[in-house]
Design a protein around this nucleic acid. Structure first.
Lengths: 346, 346
DNA sequence: CTGAAAGCGCTAACAT
DNA sequence: ATGTTAGCGCTTTCAG
């Protein structure tokens, strides 16, 4: 109802207030609070006591301006509701923990324009480094990154030129490997089910690699189904039903992510469809969720945790910058691809 | 390998650089860039051209210090890998979109000490407001919040005193309602399955409300099972198996969240256990995921999106501050609670 | 409509 | 071990 006592014209406390309350110069107070330089135990005690009693919280705005040092690392990702980026964040936070650096997240919703804006906003705070998902950016964004004068790490993907450093996997190769495993298991009539996201370049590259491998084996996708919107598990069910109805002869369903793949798996099990005999399934990401399913979906780990860690190490200077760091996802066959047949397919 | 051209001793551009490049005073450049005050079209054009050509990005550190205005809103939450907070974030971002305010996320991992630290860090950037999950904080944290002089909104929970504003639901009441529905449906031997998290106060309050309602009906929980760690879906399966094995006469499983509830549901279906006849199930949160399950788990929507929106509105000043805003979750019976029996139970 | 001066709260670099 | 001085890059305020 009425404004509480804490919101009003009470001036925020400054170093000067602590200085006066403790009878020590601002400079010494600053030293104590930053644990820099030598200060006698006596004064240190008086200063800390005064600061705590007053409830002083340093003003990092002023500190950053004076020292041209900002302990912030910008992290720009497409989405949080994705199950993949939270894990990347975990890796980043983990490695930044002891460096004094703090991650600050920005979300682009897979929009290049929005990404450009977020980059601009981030850079205007003069962070110590920037981590961003993907290699594709607007020209203006790339120009800003070039100018920034701080370490830039592009993560998740390494299929393409990087502005500075890159840490990720080759999604083209990931798609190719999955296709080879599928073909090797004897599947021939393969359908793709994925997101309708023109700006999800990683999913696009996986599909490109996948189709390239199919072509090499003289095959082509026999059907495709796209979705947009959320509730991926449900979409997975619906799409799977649609594909299996429309193309009853399909023998493999390749999903662009594990969530829709899990939905498809649940659908097949409910319909008593023989998996992996009658139809095989595979997703991508290696999410935790799959562990709880009645059967384990074939997938590939996207190395999310490791990507976050390595990116953070580059920013923290524990790893040389301006390198391309490639990680290699492991194919987990799960229970939804049947055993490898011999080199000669049926 | 070698440091790229962008990382080195190239001095970041300042207003002065733009001023010199455009032949206009710094002050006028500042006016143009902030779209404040009247500037002739001619000079405006020259300034913008110069700024763009140089690739100037304003320094918000300096701007914020000079104006004592920071367009940041701190958002402090326990976890991102939770499926609930990303949606709260969405609600916040959505409402902040047109206000010029930007959310900055901090994660506490359900640790009060970590929360205290994150609050301190956040406040040291002098944000325009703070949104934080829960009403429980350390004394030091509460003192800082009291002192901050900015709007504070505690979200998710309203069962307790707030520092300033609060937006959320009553978890006690949510637990009570679920218990009443379960008892009303004739279930009597009820078990609880939840997380081992002493600092998840919302889950605790739900259970308190739940048990209170049981007690009122002369009942008590017949079994409990706790887990910690991730992979909630798998844990849900395992815990459910454990409980049903240990207490074969249990007729209802109340889960502290939907993820483990979904795991339990999948387990029951796989075991051909009659749901909701032999055993009923219920979770909490109303997550999207449930839509894709073979059967709909009973749950309660936690109003996550709406909580985010309303909290943002308070910070943006579109809603009076220092109010307690209670939202009311809807009980969704799904397919895992059998139909209500009459007022007289069997 | 444009400019000059002062200073935001802190820290680097020197004193002492 | 402690204090002094001069900014950091911008915006506020006041003059033209």
């Amino acid at each position: 109802m009425t404004r509480p006592p804490n919101v009003g014209n009470r001036r925020p406390l400054t170093l000067r207030d602590v200085s006066e309350a403790s009878g020590v110069s601002e400079m010494t107070v600053s030293r104590v609070l930053r644990q820099r330089g030598d200060v006698s135990e006596a004064t240190r005690g008086r200063v800390l006591e005064a600061a705590r009693r007053l409830g002083y919280v340093p003003n990092k705005i002023a500190g950053a301006l004076a020292s041209s040092r900002v302990n912030l690392v910008g992290v720009i990702i497409p989405s949080l509701s994705n199950m993949v980026f939270p894990e990347v964040m975990t890796g980043i936070s983990e490695r930044l923990e002891d460096t004094g650096l703090q991650p600050v997240v920005g979300v682009t919703n897979y929009s290049p324009e929005r990404e450009e804006k977020v980059i601009y906003e981030m850079l205007s705070w003069r962070p110590s480094g920037l981590i961003l998902a993907g290699l594709e950016h607007t020209d203006a964004a790339r120009a800003m990154l070039d100018q920034a004068g701080i370490p830039i790490v592009e993560i998740m993907d390494i299929d393409g030129p990087a502005v500075d450093s890159a840490v990720g996997i080759s999604h083209r190769r990931a798609g190719r490997h999955m296709a080879e495993a599928i073909i090797g298991a004897g599947y021939r009539r393969i359908a793709f089910l994925g997101t309708q996201m023109p700006n999800d370049h990683r999913a696009r590259k996986r599909l490109e690699g996948f189709e390239a491998a199919l072509a090499q084996a003289g095959l082509a996708l026999v059907d495709r189904e796209y979705y947009s919107g959320s509730s991926a598990l449900l979409k997975g069910r619906e799409m799977t039903q649609a594909v299996l109805t429309r193309s009853p002869d399909v023998d493999f369903l390749y999903y662009s992510n594990d969530m829709i793949g899990a939905g498809g798996l649940l659908y097949c099990l409910a319909q008593n469809i023989d998996v992996p005999g009658r139809v095989g399934l595979a997703g991508f990401n290696g999410v935790d969720l799959l562990d709880g399913l009645p059967r384990r979906l074939a997938t590939m780990d996207a190395c999310r945790l490791e990507i976050g860690r390595r990116a953070a190490e580059v920013i923290a200077g524990q790893t040389p910058a301006s390198e391309r760091i490639e990680l290699f996802p492991v194919l987990q066959r799960g229970d939804t691809i049947r055993a490898e047949t011999g080199p000669t397919a049926p």
